[in-house]
Design a protein around this nucleic acid. Structure first.
Lengths: 266, 266
DNA sequence: TAGTGGTCTAGACCACTGT
DNA sequence: CAGTGGTCTAGACCACTAA
């Protein structure tokens, strides 16, 4: 069935005039968009169905096809519609979903310490992962990964309070060259892999839990054994959801806390 | 000075043909966009400067103004350009900044426990905040807030392991009616305030730190004293960055961890 | 092959801005 | 006021999809 395949609709009949919306002077395409949005919201165009063609809508509303396209473009921006060449315009959602975003300028913002922090690697060894560790890395047992262990600390007098965290990194063997031998890193491991191998990190999974430090960890971090700490595990995924590297950061409680702000879209 | 105020530029001279980009068949507006992007990247159009007018660009490239607008719209979507009616098109950025997003369907997703968890309030008292507490709430001393103290727990047998967390909530006195007396809440406090008072939460600040539970807290949470816990503080802001409510959640380490995924835009 | 959305043009008028 | 971007039109051709 075609929706109103004939006959013309005056936009002034359709636009519901809320108290805040001065619809009288709204652009034509916004009036069209609003009308379509109302129809979608009321179920006249169910989710999954195809909208009338742009040509038909143009005829119905008595506007040019370009104006209809602008209206549809507006609703596509709101994820209410999607369009495919040769097919049509599909209804994707009932109403605009108010979602909230946590925006990062770069992945570096996941780290919440100064960008000049240094990662001093004390041990770098190639290992064949087994059992539980292979499972954590999402690979078959026997695959080779580079394991780094070290401390992250601020340079100069700022670092006098002790290390920021104790960090263990597992790097897929393919990218082991970035840190094959122990040294001091001033750039994040994932960033070095991105640059050196042209891999692009598309997704990061971060996991935060509370724990208490063991005697051994306490000595390295220069805190009391049994004191609280945040254990932050990050998994960096490249294209195809393949794990590129995994880092495990143990932050002494007193020296660190994780802050984030979430904003409503728009 | 006007940039190339006269003379025409053939697009085929401008588009740099990377190995992956089949530029030969790219849309005209994408070729224009690419050319402009190159010029911006190379500093021919410095950040903060105005682009030549749409009319001039159309003339220069030998395309219609609509096509230039499409190209500019493309770059505006990438936050490289911004446009103001009556003024012009301004260069905002050097190159596309790859930003990453953490998307939430709703603020409920900040909570990482089952949505049927109950908040059992054991104490609700109106207080006049002073000193440090007033500072935390960003208000003058003497302002009245409602303080709730209680446990969040799962209903039925799922809750047998003990409470999910020990939660203290401070509610701006204006909205105190939503929880004036101790009772069991099945919906988040902020959501009740949103519904009841028409306030809309536009921003949430979340703060995660590690701590160890005191003897008193341990008894309530049914864990060992000195065991690790996550302390999650959330500040809910309404329009104008006014604090609507603040919640402080103490999660026993073993029962809880905070997970989030960040994705590259597009 | 018929019909879709994607692109493109050459015009036109408008609201807004800065002088 | 002149000039800007924002909107709108009536055409046209194209690449793509599904029958």
């Amino acid at each position: 069935m075609r929706w109103r395949s004939c006959g013309q609709t005056r936009l002034s009949d359709c636009v519901t005039g809320g108290p805040m919306t001065s619809n009288g002077s709204a652009s034509l395409y916004l009036q069209v968009a609003r009308t379509l949005q109302d129809r979608i919201a009321t179920g006249a165009h169910p989710i999954g169905s195809l909208l009338p063609t742009e040509h038909m809508l143009a005829e119905e509303f008595g506007v040019s096809r370009q104006t209809v396209r602008q209206a549809i473009g507006h609703l596509r921006g709101m994820k209410l519609l999607s369009a495919r060449k040769g097919v049509g315009t599909r209804v994707e959602a009932n109403r605009p979903q108010t979602s909230y975003y946590h925006t990062l300028q770069s992945l570096q913002d996941l780290f919440q310490f100064a960008s000049d922090a240094q990662y001093r690697v004390t041990s770098a060894e190639m290992v064949s992962v087994t059992g539980k560790e292979a499972e954590e890395l999402g690979c078959r047992p026997g695959r080779r990964w580079l394991r780094l262990v070290g401390l992250r600390e601020l340079p100069g007098p700022l670092g006098a309070d002790g290390p920021l965290c104790l960090t263990t990194v597992m790097i897929d063997g393919r990218y082991a060259d970035v840190a094959a031998t122990p040294r001091v890193h001033t750039r994040a491991i994932f960033a070095q892999i991105e640059d050196r191998f042209g891999v692009s990190i598309t997704e990061v999974h971060q996991d935060i839990e509370a724990t208490v430090v063991t005697a051994e960890q306490a000595a390295l971090l220069r805190v009391e054994p049994g004191s609280p700490a945040l254990l932050i595990t990050r998994r960096y995924f490249g294209s195809g959801r393949t794990l590129v590297d995994l880092s495990r950061n143990l932050h002494p409680g007193g020296r660190f806390r994780y802050a984030m702000t979430v904003r409503r879209e728009e």
